[in-house]
């Protein structure tokens, strides 16, 4: 169990670094395109597409880490009044459901990537293959689901510790 958590942490760290790189690259591409277009009149036609793809990577790679930090907003107006034990069970149910749900999402994004790959569709302007970016998003969801699974397993762990 402990090493599962370590692997998870390691993967989330790597994705965080890559995501940060992507957000800075996104900023640079959009900024450079302004500079190229305005003073130099040589806009890079593909900028719009690349910015969109980078944006996808930024968000997808942040998924696991954001979950790790428990940043996603939970409405606990009612549940905060429940006993701690009940809430832990509810958390368990919540992690269990979302682990499965986002595993399905990851799978379906992957399926979508496969479809794009097989159909031979390319991006509008650069005419480049973009299914690898879709696979990146799918991978982000995989790690996200994995993180939720680790959170789910942790609930049992802390219970064992208490008793």
């Amino acid at each position: 169990m402990n090493y599962l958590e370590k692997i998870n942490l390691f993967l989330n760290r790597i994705l965080l670094v890559l995501g940060s790189a992507a957000v800075l690259l996104l900023m640079s591409v959009a900024t450079v395109n302004v500079v190229l277009r305005y003073p130099f009149k040589v806009p890079w036609r593909g900028a719009y597409e690349v910015v969109g793809f980078l944006g996808a990577i930024v968000i997808a790679f942040a998924l696991g880490f954001t979950q790790k930090r428990k940043d996603h907003i939970v409405v606990d107006i009612l549940t905060e009044k429940f006993p701690k034990k009940v809430n832990r069970i509810l958390d368990g149910i919540s992690y269990f459901i979302t682990t499965i749900f986002f595993a399905i999402v990851s799978w379906q994004v992957f399926v979508w990537g496969l479809k794009i790959m097989k159909s031979g569709e390319v991006s509008e302007t650069l005419k480049m293959v973009f299914h690898p970016v879709i696979f990146c998003v799918s991978f982000g969801f995989t790690i996200f689901s994995f993180t939720l699974l680790v959170d789910f397993l942790n609930i049992f762990k802390s219970k064992e510790k208490q008793t």
């Binding site: 806009p43 036609r45 302007t125």
Partner: peptide, 26 residues
């Protein structure tokens, strides 16, 4: 020649071959 024109991304090459500057934007 050298005129910036908005085109759908798929048609950018057509304008380029005619001498314009195609700009693909949403």
């Amino acid at each position: 020649k050298g005129m910036e024109l908005r085109v759908p991304g798929t048609a950018a090459d057509i304008i380029k071959n005619l001498g314009g500057i195609p700009i693909a934007m949403p």
